[in-house]
Amino acid sequence: MPGPKNLDPSSSPRALLGAELRVARERAGLTQAELAERLFVSGSFIGQLEAGTRRMHLDVARQIDEILRTDGFFARNCEAAAKSKYPDHSAAAAEAEALAKTIREYAPLIIPGLLQTEAYARAVFRAYQPTATEDVIDELVRNRLERAALLGDPTTPVFWCVLDEAILRRSGDDPSILAEALRHIASLIRSHRIVVQVLPFSAGFHAGLLGSLKLMSFEDAPPLAYVQGMGTGQLFDDPSTVAQHTLTYDLLMANALSPRESLALIESVAEDFEHDQLA
């Protein structure tokens, strides 16, 4: 029987590589758990590789080729599948969210990327990289807006986020940028595209003090949890770890304002910043 064809890097290479992995594994008569045992990884990790929600690294690809006797196919093609326009620390999460059925996110410092406007994204990237050329900033903004286009679908993914009140108050040098960004969020809420809750200052100490959190679920793969710090990010698939982060998110929701109260606060703060501009 002929082996799998080399992948076309221009057509969702990670998803294609995952599909070929499933074919090769089943041809070898192995379950996901059995292949995982030979690779010393979890069964859920194999499921995520096959679903295209996880990146296949070269060392894993070589082991897969050896176990499944695929004559170097996966090692040859994983380089194309690993290419990303996102920073290394966040690439896996950014690409996984494009396949997610539901996304739940806690944001403590800035508006989540999927909700950012062009002006807000530009201001954030410029703050991160004050000496970068305009071409670099333009590319970062373009990639960010391409990600945000994910919400152009009227139903998928379901997006629910908890915003720390600090996000609503950090305006920078131009308050109109934040006002526009908050109006954009309010518009998405009013069009029933997203659900947003604000975690108010009055909540005091809370479960999310250590940083941002993103939870993603998928149609045909186990859920993932992503936590991010300054220039770092970790993607977790271990069920107990995902469950722990899910509890953290549930606690944050419990301490946040209701969606209706949150919308009222978002629009009120936007109006305040708009009035500041006119004063």
Rank of each mutant, 00 (worst) to 15 (best):
G29E: 02
T31G: 03
T31K: 04
T31I: 02
Q32W: 01
A33K: 15
A33V: 15
E34H: 02
E34Q: 13
L35Y: 10
A36M: 09
L39R: 04
L39N: 03
V41F: 05
S42E: 06
G43F: 00
G43P: 00
G43R: 00
G43Q: 00
I46S: 04
G52R: 00
T53V: 11
R54K: 12
R55S: 07
H57S: 15
A61I: 04
R62Y: 00
D65M: 12
E66K: 12
R69A: 12
R69Q: 14
T70W: 08
G72W: 05
F74P: 09
F74N: 07
C78M: 05
A82P: 05
K83M: 14
S84E: 01
Y86G: 08
Y86I: 09
D88V: 09
D88F: 04
H89A: 07
S90I: 14
A91D: 04
A92R: 03
A93C: 04
A94L: 15
E95H: 05
A98N: 13
A98H: 13
A98K: 15
A98T: 15
L99H: 02
A107S: 14
A107G: 06
I110P: 03
I110H: 13
I111G: 03
I111V: 13
I111T: 10
P112N: 03
G113S: 03
L114C: 05
Q116R: 06
T117Y: 05
E118Y: 10
E118G: 08
A119N: 08
Y120G: 08
R122Y: 11
A123T: 11
A123Q: 10
F125V: 07
R126L: 03
Q129W: 14
L140R: 15
L140M: 14
L140W: 11
R142D: 13
R142P: 08
R142T: 12
